[in-house]
Nucleic acid binder design. Sequence first.
DNA 1: TATTGTTATACTCTATAACTATA
DNA 2: TATAGTTATAGAGTATAACAATA
Lengths: 144, 144
Amino acid sequence: MSTSRDDPRLGLVEALGAVAFAVMGALTKLAAERDLSLTQLRMVGLLRDRQLTISELALALGLDRSSVSGLVDRTEKRGLVRREPNPADARSVHVTLSTSGHEAFAAGASEMAAMLSSLTDALSPAEAARLTTLLERMLDHRGL
Amino acid sequence: MSTSRDDPRLGLVEALGAVAFAVMGALTKLAAERDLSLTQLRMVGLLRDRQLTISELALALGLDRSSVSGLVDRTEKRGLVRREPNPADARSVHVTLSTSGHEAFAAGASEMAAMLSSLTDALSPAEAARLTTLLERMLDHRGL
DNA sequence: TATTGTTATACTCTATAACTATA
DNA sequence: TATAGTTATAGAGTATAACAATA
């Protein structure tokens, strides 16, 4: 990619970076308020409507299985998730959200929206819709 | 914030979150390829055109001074930054980018643009410009 | 043999608390 | 007294390597 100053995409990269840090900062703060790491928060989000094995979680989170094993240990100790046997394969476990994990997710989701509203409130509904479309186009263009 | 499904801002929050994770993932991968942490990468970026004290870095990075002290230790050991005396205050130090730190930043910046181009290439120049404007409006609306 | 998960180990990141030197 | 930075300590997060159980 060129570094020419009048390439509109250069400003985009910078703006994307700045927004990403702002969003991650808000999410990290939100997680910290509940004494959770960002990774734990992501895991809870992934498990909100399904159960996943350690390997599946590792793939989704981009982590090694051993890292996820410890992550589940700590999150299980906090009562947010549970390990359950996988009837189809005795080697594997299903990680599921506990009741208090579901509650934590529900509370966190609305707080997340509230936190990010300090960003999104800058836009009118029409602009927000246009921005959403553009962001989703970018996301669809590749994997995640 | 409402959870009504037809509120365009709800999709925005989700899209912002997804984009933030995508961008952070790309940046983390980029940093890892150079054996740097994301925090080290951020610090190098902050120092590219100025020198900052430990306290200033801590403020900019949202970290405790003691965390930054160790961070500078490790990055200094890698030869990317240097501690220099602050003539105006003997308690304080100026952290500056070394020559190889500047090289690392230059290489990283173009790689970052290339990596994010998998996202930004989905848009035409006009759309990219519009997106940039919207993102910058959001950023200006608050602090960072 | 290959896969799933765990454990042991090591390093980075981070915060809190206590400290030194300087202001 | 207050501030800048460091150190000691502790816990989370992560990866690699070696392992046990199961497929």
